[in-house]
Each structure stands twice: as structure tokens, then as C-alpha cells.
Design a protein around this nucleic acid. Structure first.
Length: 447
RNA sequence: GGCCCUAUCGUCUAAUGGCUAGGACAUCACCCUCUCACGGUGGUAAUCGGGGUUCGACUCCCCGUAGGGUCACCA
């Protein structure tokens, strides 16, 4: 039993697409699960469209997601080998050079290399779908190279897979119809046929193949938005694959242990940002507060000082944000009041004040001051709540306005917002001194 | 259009001849509650249609229908 070898063959002609990431992931999981080898191959035979910066982006993105490989190669570096085999096929009469009008400029004549098609039916076994049969006569003598020194994708792929001893080709469903012509080239070359597994495509909301116009399709976009690589990997794996039971929480290592081609779905899977967001939030919540802060990456931002106050807001961010981008938005929006003192308005402060007790707000806030002072610094939310909640409860027994008669002005005085975390949490994060200052500011406004 | 692939809640999926068709996301209701968020509980929601095979079909076969992919001197 020979070792399993899979490949990750991205084409550096564009950004690192999530479809590329998922195909790479399935190859990675399958090989690692079986203790096999992984070959990374940059498919850069199209010299005009391939760019080194795209290749760098793809490699970096793959590493970011946690994937590694055992062998690195570039298709372009294999050019001498391609030429050698192309010449061999021509010498053997299995391919021929044909002079014909150029596709883009018919007035000019060029020479292309065509494979002599035996014109037979090709049946191959797809590990996901079973036997698939094509009649290759309609392909004719198809072009396999622009010239003897310039092979086309189909030819280069077959040669490189053969030379790398690739045993399993796991790729998108859009390659199904390419398979018979690649098998024809293999047979002309006398190359062994690898096993094929075509995985379902990722579809957009409109159930069409995911493309640039479908929204964010580059892995880098998600990275910049503040998604965790663990979340993307987890979500991508579950898109078109299932462990067979109800488990949904998978790390890369757990996927390696569990993955099997048996669980691969046959039909296309629609991309769901909603679901990704929820998976990402789950992974964000698993982070320690320190790690969370590192990912948040606002360390040197002076508007979120002091540092320990920022650290204390992490639980709030974990509860509210689904990406680190959202977390940063929260800090500069809804939670900005934790770092910048508000300027409360008189009307809003008194909004919940019962008509028959016009000075309730003022006495309530004044009543908070003494117990607040009695608290030691750095206590838990629970301790703050235990100390201050009785004041609100006492007000509730008087029946006018309930706890809100105390808690509303308190929260508003502290945050300056009608929507905010609860006052006990605010006090815990702001600290005794800052809380007292803000309450006094509110009292001054009340006159 | 030719060829190929596919078809379970809105979405991702489980159930590989025998269950009230399960879970997750989303959604709705209720609870928690000063607001927001979190959390808790419960609900709505699916086997594309028609024929077979079988004691019995989500599951197997055929025909429709629908969706997707592919038809390059791109990869």
C-alpha cells in the first residue's frame, strides 16, 4: 500500500479565494488523516496572469488557516520536463504540431500542439459520486500546449501529478468535465490514474457559483474583518462535509482525526455569512481575555485607556461582538462611554421620574454616593450589585417607578446613553472614582 | 443548446428499507430584566412531482421538473 499523496494546486492569478481555501482544506485533511503527503504547487503556467504577490497571499493565507505541506513547487519551474514529454508524445505520434490561424488574430498563423484523441468513452470512479462516464469523441484533438515550450494547464497538471506521485485528486465539482481529457493525456503518457474526488461547489445566496460579485470571497477579507482562522476552518469544513453525527465544533486537529471522504456532500452548499458569524463568535468566546485583547489589536490606541479598563470590557465584547471588527466598532460606539465621560441631558435624566415625586432622581443618585464610597476598589460586579441593588429594591417597595427609578438615572448618569451595559457592570469597569465623578456631574446638572 | 452532476426545514446537514424525519444557524414566543446584549425554555418550518420495486420507502429503479457545472491557444 503506497502512501497517500494529495496536492494543493492554487493558481496565483487572483486573490486567495475561499473556494481555493476549502479545496486545500479537504486535501489537507484527507492526507493528514491517512498519514500521507501534501504537495503544494503554484499553477503559474499562465505567465501573463500569474503574479508573485497573489502567490504570497495564498501561501500566507494557507499558513494563517493552519495548513502546512511537505513539498513546494511551481509549475513554471517544471518547464523542461513539460517540453521533454511534449516532444516525446509528438515523436510517438500521440500528439502533433498543427499550424492554424491564431484565435485572437486570425490573420496570423501559429503552431499549437494537439493530442491525437483516440475518441473513446472514458469512465472514472469519483470517490464522492461513483462512476462517471464521458464520450470523449466530441472533444476532438484538443490543444494541450501553445507550443512545445508552453504547455496548457491540462497537460502540465497531468505531468506534475505523475511526477509527484499524486494518488488522490480532490478538487471542485467544476473540474468533473476536465477529468476525461486529463485521463486521455495520462493514457498517452502511460501515467497511472489517480483517484478522483470532486467536492461540491460553494454557492452564493442565489445558488450560483461563488464569485467576486457575491460579496466577500477572499480569505484576506475575512481576516481583515476580524474572523478567527479556527472559525473559518471550522465553518469551511462543515460546508459540504459532515462527520455523520451532530457535532459541529471542530478544531483543525479534530477535523484531521475525523475527516473522511464518505461524509462529503454531493450537492452544492450555499455560503451563509450568518452561520459563519455564529461559529466565529463561538471561537472568540473560547479565547482567554489576554488572547482576546491581542486579537483586538487596539493596544496603542490612546482612546481606550487606561489599559485595565480595556481589559475589563473584554467580557462585554465577547458577549456582543461576532468579529473583532465588530468589537472595535463597539469600543468606538456603544461602549465608548467606558473611556470617555458622557454629558447627560437633564430631560433624559428625569425621564423615568414619577410626576408626583419630582426630586426622586436627585435623591436616588445622592443615595448611591455613600454606599459607593464604602466599596473597596476592584470588586466584582456581584459585590457592586449586592451593595447597590437593595437601594433600588427599597425604591421598588414604594411602588413608584420600581427599580428603574434608581437604576435608570444611575445607568444614564454613568453612560450618557439610553442603551448600555447595566450600571453595576459600568461601575465595576469605570472604578469607584470615575463613577463618583460622573454621578456628581449628573447631580450638578439636576441642580 | 450538447454533455455531466445534483435534489431532506429559509440555510448547513443527520437518518445508507422499518423513528413522532434529529441537530445547528436564522426566525417567532415566553422567561430573565432599568435599557442593550448574553442566557434559559418552547414553537413554526423539510423528504421537488409522477410512476414503479417492496409487507414497508427520505433511502433502490425509471420518467419528468428544477438548480448547478462545463463546453478556451484560462486555470
Amino acid at each position: 500500500m503506497s502512501t497517500i499523496v494529495t496536492r494543493i494546486p492554487p493558481s496565483p492569478t487572483g486573490h486567495f479565494h475561499i473556494g481555493t481555501a476549502r479545496a486545500a482544506l479537504f486535501n489537507y485533511l484527507f492526507a493528514r488523516h491517512h498519514g500521507g503527503r501534501i504537495v503544494f504547487r503554484s499553477e503559474d503556467t499562465d505567465r501573463t496572469r500569474s503574479k508573485r504577490e497573489y502567490e504570497d497571499e495564498i501561501i500566507e493565507g494557507l499558513h494563517w488557516l493552519g495548513m502546512e505541506w511537505d513539498e513546494f513547487s511551481r509549475q513554471s519551474e517544471n518547464a523542461p520536463r513539460h517540453r521533454e514529454l511534449l516532444e516525446k508524445l509528438v515523436a510517438e505520434g500521440k500528439a502533433y504540431v498543427s499550424a492554424e490561424p491564431a484565435k485572437d488574430a486570425p490573420e496570423r498563423t501559429v503552431e499549437v500542439v494537439r493530442l491525437k484523441n483516440p475518441g473513446k468513452a472514458i469512465t472514472f470512479t469519483d470517490l464522492v459520486r461513483g462512476d462517471i462516464t464521458f464520450d470523449t469523441t466530441e472533444l476532438g484533438d484538443f490543444v494541450i500546449a501553445r507550443s512545445l515550450g508552453d504547455p496548457l494547464y491540462h497537460f502540465a497538471v497531468v505531468v506534475d501529478d505523475m511526477d509527484a506521485s499524486v494518488t488522490h485528486v480532490i478538487r471542485g465539482e467544476d473540474h468533473i468535465s476536465n477529468t476525461p481529457r486529463q485521463i486521455l493525456i495520462q493514457e498517452a503518457l502511460g501515467a497511472p490514474r489517480p483517484a478522483y474526488a470532486h467536492i461540491p461547489l460553494i454557492l452564493d445566496e442565489k445558488r450560483a457559483k461563488l464569485s467576486k460579485r457575491s460579496g466577500a470571497t477572499a480569505v484576506t477579507d475575512y481576516r481583515n474583518e476580524g474572523f478567527l482562522p479556527e472559525a473559518l476552518v471550522n465553518y469551511l469544513a462543515l460546508l459540504g462535509w459532515s462527520p455523520g453525527d451532530d457535532r459541529e465544533d471542530f478544531s483543525l486537529a479534530e477535523l484531521v482525526a475525523t475527516f473522511s471522504l464518505e461524509g462529503v456532500q454531493k450537492s452544492g452548499a450555499a455560503w451563509s455569512r450568518e452561520k459563519l458569524l455564529s461559529v466565529n463568535q463561538r471561537w472568540m468566546r473560547k479565547l482567554s481575555d489576554a488572547d482576546f485583547l491581542t486579537h483586538l489589536d487596539v493596544g496603542r490606541n490612546s482612546s481606550y485607556m487606561p489599559e485595565e479598563r480595556l481589559a475589563k470590557t473584554v467580557p462585554l465584547l465577547k458577549e456582543r461582538a461576532q468579529t473583532f471588527g465588530e468589537a472595535r466598532d463597539l469600543l468606538s460606539g456603544e461602549l465608548a462611554c467606558l473611556f470617555t465621560a458622557p454629558t447627560p441631558s437633564l430631560d433624559t435624566l428625569r425621564a423615568k421620574e414619577p410626576a408626583d415625586r419630582p426630586s426622586l432622581t436627585k435623591t436616588a443618585l445622592e443615595g448611591i454616593l455613600a454606599p459607593l464610597e464604602s466599596l473597596p476598589d476592584g470588586v466584582s460586579v456581584e459585590a457592586v450589585k449586592d451593595t447597590l441593588m437593595p437601594l433600588a429594591d427599597a425604591e421598588e417597595t414604594k411602588g413608584k417607578g420600581g427599580r428603574g427609578a434608581v437604576l435608570w438615572p444611575l445607568r444614564y448618569a454613568l453612560s450618557g446613553q439610553e442603551r448600555s451595559p447595566d450600571p453595576f457592570t459600568l461601575i465595576t469597569i469605570l472604578g469607584k472614582g470615575e463613577s463618583r465623578d460622573r454621578i456628581r456631574t449628573a447631580l450638578a446638572i439636576l441642580g
